[in-house]
Design a protein around this nucleic acid. Structure first.
Length: 419
DNA sequence: TCTGGGGTCCTAGGACCC
DNA sequence: TCTGGGGTCCTAGGACCC
C-alpha cells in the first residue's frame, strides 16, 4: 500500500506569532532575534525579500541603509511555545497519527485517508488559521523526505497545500529541488555530492544504492530510498525520553570573575534540574563547560569541559548544583574573558527506570522539598524560590531590548481589546 | 561593543579482552 | 624467532536538524 505522509509547517513561525497579536507588524519586514539579541532567527516574507539572511548578526544588520523600515523583536519563547501547543492540539484532535517534529512542524500519517488526504489537509489548515491566526503549509508525499520537499512547494502554492504523490509530478519537482534543500543533506554533503555531479534531488534519487551505502553511510542510503518513495523513516508517535539535556547561554558581555561565573552556572544547573523534574527524568552525570569568545582570536582563549559523576541518578537541584560548581573549580582559569558556559546532563533516563545504588540512596524528604519548590515557582513565577542563594533579579541574564509581551501566558500581559 | 540554543545519530579509533 | 584477529565498549568528533 502506498503510504501518505504530510508535513505541516507553520510559515515564518516566530514572526507569525508576533503578528497574531501585533497587527501593526503585518506587511512590514519583521525579524526575530536570538537570545541576547545576537542574530536573526526568523524573518517575515518581506524581510526575506530584502535579502536578510537567517543567522545574520544583528549588529551588522543595523548598518544597512534600509534597516529603519525593519521591525525587530527579541525572541519570546514563552509565546511561541504556547502558540505551538495550540496548533499541535488542533492537529492531534483531528488526526491521531501525528508526530510533533519541532516547535513549528509536525508529520501526519494520512495513509488511511488515501485520495482524500489533500482535502483533509485543506480543512485542517483552515481550522488552524481560524482558531490561532497561524498560517500552516501542508506538503504530502509517500515518505517523510518527500513530504518535506512537497512542503516547500506548498509554501508557494495559493492554497498552502501541495501533494507530491504521482510519479510525474515527483520527477518534475525533484529536478527543481536543489540537493542542498533535501532533508538530511547539509552543506558538507551538498558540496561533496556536487563533485559527483549530483546537483538536484532527482540526481540523488537515481544513484546506485550500494554506492550510496558505501559513500554516504546508512543515513545517506535512507535519504536515497525515501526520495524514491520507499519509506525508511517512520512516524515517531511516542516522544522518546531525552538522552541529554542542556542549559547554556552566551553572555552579553564576557565574564572574568570566578564568583560571577559560579553564579551563572548555579542558575543553569538549577534550570537543568527543574527541566529534568518536569520530564520525570534523572541524570547520572553532568558535563560542565566554559569557553572564551571564539569570534575574537585577539583575546586570550580557553575552552574546556569536565564530566562530574553524580553518586546516583538524580534530579535534585542541590546535587546537580554542587557537582556543577565542583566542575567549575577544575575548569576555571583566571584572566580569561569567558563568553559562554553551560551544563549538559548526561545518562538521562526516566526516573522510574533509573538504576538504584546499593551504597547511596535518594532521600524522600529531598523529593518533597523539590516538589514544594517547583509548585511555589509555578504559582508565583520562576525564581520565587532559588536553591542555596538569595533570589535576585538577573540583570545579566539576557539582552532582550525588543521583547513583545507574553500575550497568552501572563495575566498582566494579556492583549487588550477595545471596542 | 555586538555572531543562539538545544537536540539526534553515526562513525572512527583506542582500549581491552580472549 | 614470532607481532593474529575478532569482538565489545567507550569516547570524541562530525554532520545534521530546527
Amino acid at each position: 500500500m502506498t503510504r501518505v505522509f504530510a508535513l505541516a509547517d507553520a510559515n515564518n513561525f516566530y514572526a507569525s506569532c508576533e503578528r497574531v497579536f501585533q497587527p501593526e507588524l503585518r506587511g512590514k519586514p519583521t525579524v526575530v532575534l536570538s537570545n541576547n539579541d545576537g542574530c536573526v532567527i526568523a524573518r517575515s516574507p518581506e524581510a526575506k525579500a530584502m535579502g536578510i539572511a537567517m543567522g545574520a548578526p544583528f549588529f551588522k544588520l543595523k548598518e544597512r541603509a534600509d534597516f529603519r523600515c525593519v521591525q525587530v523583536r527579541s525572541a519570546n519563547f514563552t509565546l511561541y511555545g504556547d502558540m505551538s501547543r495550540r496548533f499541535m492540539d488542533i492537529i492531534a484532535a483531528n488526526t491521531p497519527d501525528m508526530e510533533i517534529y519541532s516547535i513549528d512542524e509536525c508529520f501526519i500519517d494520512y495513509t488511511r485517508a488515501g485520495a482524500a488526504a489533500a482535502d483533509r489537509a485543506r480543512d485542517l489548515r483552515a481550522m488552524i488559521l481560524q482558531w490561532t491566526g497561524l498560517s500552516v503549509s501542508f506538503g504530502l508525499g509517500a515518505t517523510k523526505t518527500l513530504a518535506k520537499i512537497a512542503n516547500r512547494q506548498a509554501k508557494a502554492s495559493p492554497d498552502g497545500v501541495f501533494a507530491l504523490l504521482d510519479a510525474d509530478t515527483r520527477a518534475d519537482v525533484l529536478r527543481e529541488t536543489d540537493v542542498r534543500d533535501v532533508w538530511g543533506i547539509g552543506k558538507k554533503w551538498a558540496n561533496r555530492l556536487q563533485c559527483h555531479d549530483i546537483h538536484n534531488a532527482h540526481d540523488l534519487a537515481r544513484v546506485d544504492r550500494q554506492w550510496a551505502r558505501n559513500v554516504m553511510g546508512v543515513v545517506g542510503l535512507r535519504t536515497v530510498d525515501e526520495l524514491n518513495g520507499l519509506s525508511a523513516v517512520s512516524l515517531e508517535q511516542v516522544t522518546p525520553d531525552k538522552q541529554t539535556l542542556c542549559v547554556s547561554r552566551s553572555f552579553g558581555t564576557t565574564v572574568r570573575d570566578r564568583a560571577e561565573l559560579a553564579s551563572r552556572l548555579h542558575h543553569f544547573a538549577s534550570r537543568a534540574a527543574e527541566k529534568l523534574r518536569q520530564g520525570g527524568l534523572v541524570a547520572s552525570a553532568v558535563n560542565v563547560f566554559i569557553k572564551g569568545n571564539t569570534f575574537r582570536p585577539d583575546l586570550p582563549q580557553h575552552a574546556n569541559n569536565v564530566t562530574m559523576e553524580l553518586s546516583f541518578p538524580t534530579s535534585d537541584t542541590g546535587d546537580i548544583v554542587r557537582a556543577t560548581l565542583q566542575g567549575l573549580g577544575r575548569l576555571y582559569r583566571p584572566g580569561i574573558p569567558y563568553k559562554k558556559a553551560g551544563v549538559l546532563m548526561l545518562e538521562v533516563c526516566n526516573a522510574k527506570l533509573a538504576p538504584r545504588s546499593l551504597f547511596a540512596a535518594p532521600d524522600p524528604r529531598r523529593d518533597r522539598l523539590m516538589q514544594t519548590m517547583d509548585s511555589l515557582n509555578a504559582k508565583h513565577g520562576p525564581g520565587t524560590l532559588c536553591y542555596g542563594k538569595i533570589p535576585q533579579p538577573r540583570t545579566w541574564y539576557m539582552t532582550q531590548r525588543h521583547r513583545s509581551p507574553r500575550f497568552t501566558t501572563h495575566w498582566r500581559e494579556l492583549p487588550v481589546a477595545r471596542t
